[in-house]
């Protein structure tokens, strides 16, 4: 454990588990989706962390799950962390519900708006973005899902 995450692990009990990400063994915090916002807010506000920069947010489908991965760091402290949560992968073109982190990290806006269109993720409590609209091409379904079929007439 490179970061002092003991307090967070105590607070969240079984809802948070610590692992390692990649060969560089960056701290990877797996959090149950029901407590993701709480954990993100704690990392953002806790004085010893101040994780105020959501550098990137990524989602991928593997082993029947959609894994949401957030690469976060602090502007003022030399901390970085990978935060992860998952939900069961949807069947067909069903939408997936997931909590939005825009209110905690406004930087999430750019990533969540793409996940919504390309992965079919419906973010709960996400403030409507009237300042940036996305006008993607014509396609049925959600192109970045594994079940998406790239056939005739797909204009992405």
């Amino acid at each position: 454990m490179q970061l002092p995450l003991k307090k967070l692990l105590e607070l969240f009990g079984e809802a948070a588990q610590l692992g390692e990400f990649g060969a560089l063994r960056i701290d990877l915090l797996n959090v149950d989706v029901s407590r993701l916002i709480e954990a993100a807010a704690w990392l953002r506000m806790e004085e010893s962390f101040r994780m105020d920069f959501l550098e990137n947010a990524s989602v991928f489908e593997k082993d029947g799950k959609l894994l949401f991965t957030y690469f976060i760091r602090s502007f003022s402290k030399p901390h970085r962390l990978v935060l992860r949560s998952s939900v069961p992968a949807p069947v067909g073109n069903e939408w997936v519900d997931f909590p939005s982190l825009v209110r905690i990290w406004p930087q999430a806006e750019a990533f969540e708006s793409e996940m919504e269109i390309l992965f079919g993720v419906r973010f709960a409590d996400r403030p409507p973005n009237r300042q940036h609209l996305k006008n993607f091409g014509k396609f049925d379904g959600f192109p970045l899902r594994k079940s998406f079929e790239w056939g005739e007439g797909v204009d992405l």
Binding site: K134, N135, F136, W150
Partner: peptide, 19 residues
Amino acid sequence: EVSIETGYLHKGLEKSFER
């Protein structure tokens, strides 16, 4: 007031990697 709209030339690049 300003709003922007992007996506007109979206390349689907991330999907292209998987193919």
